[in-house]
Design a protein around this nucleic acid. Structure first.
Lengths: 141, 141
DNA sequence: ACGACGAGTTGCACAATACAACCTTCGGAG
DNA sequence: CTCCGAAGGTTGTATTGTGCAACTCGTCGT
């Protein structure tokens, strides 16, 4: 089997994975869709960021982020730091409720993964992780 | 490093990949959105399959596949084999036009992948492919 | 003080999806 | 053979995530 054939296989499998992630409701915790989850977790990881930072990170339109964040706020999962009601540079931070939901979702995701790779040896899993990391680390342009 | 730590790493890397795919531009080739591309390539790879097979592969509703395939057919990229106009088990196959578009898009994707994995050995690439396939094949429930 | 710019919101449109209801055909069991 | 149930496929409807465009609001430099 030559390299091109192998590469085609990688391509196919990545596509299947990507398609599945894109589709499906992908509720991690009935109340926390994938998009909301990733934004929440990024706000948490960054220890407080602005909407525009999320837009840059995910290469999304500002309006999309605005709506998603508005939803998270309405549900009490994040707060807008500035009491300055409007304008520039409002810091977002995760509330206690948001943190709790995030933790639950992370646990659910880990459980799902554990089920999928139950039959894998530690070495196989570690190799998979290393390969994915290496792939993701490659320059995108 | 214990298994939980490794699993967390896998989770993180899969999430990074998924987020990027979500935010990425839809089109690989003007006129061929990501969704259409992946279905077309699956039809091609399977050497002719039914709509329900695509629904199973991507865990999509049959109605979604029906609309997507309808679109591909309208654009002359696939044909429905059975002259039996309606009903059960119609085989889908890729037309010459579909194949041509697919080849162009595949070449672009392969070039991108080749760049990313340029430094990988054939063995590493093959192992990556096998692990992804195994992951994707795992039962989702 | 004013004008340019950066951050955010809102209106509108669209693509992809799920769910439910329905239709069509095939393969058996009686 | 007839009828019925299961499997494949389509259509109606609602929802979600998204981009683009136009707008508002606040800040900063001159």
């Amino acid at each position: 089997m030559d390299r091109e054939t192998i590469a085609a296989g990688v391509q196919r499998e990545l596509t299947v994975f990507a398609r599945r992630v894109r589709g499906l409701p992908e509720r991690l915790h009935r109340e926390l869709p994938f998009v909301a989850y990733s934004m929440l977790s990024s706000i948490s990881a960054a220890g407080g960021c602005r909407s525009v930072d999320l837009a840059d990170l995910y290469r999304l339109d500002r309006s999309t982020v605005s709506r998603q964040v508005g939803d998270l706020e309405r549900r009490g999962l994040v707060t807008r730091a500035g009491d300055a009601s409007r304008g520039r540079g409002r810091r977002l931070s995760v509330t206690a409720a948001g943190r709790a939901l995030l933790d639950e979702a992370a646990a659910a995701r880990q459980a799902e993964l554990a089920r999928r790779v139950a039959a894998w040896s530690d070495e196989e899993l570690a190799a998979f992780e290393a390969a994915l990391r290496r792939y993701n680390a490659a320059e995108p342009d």
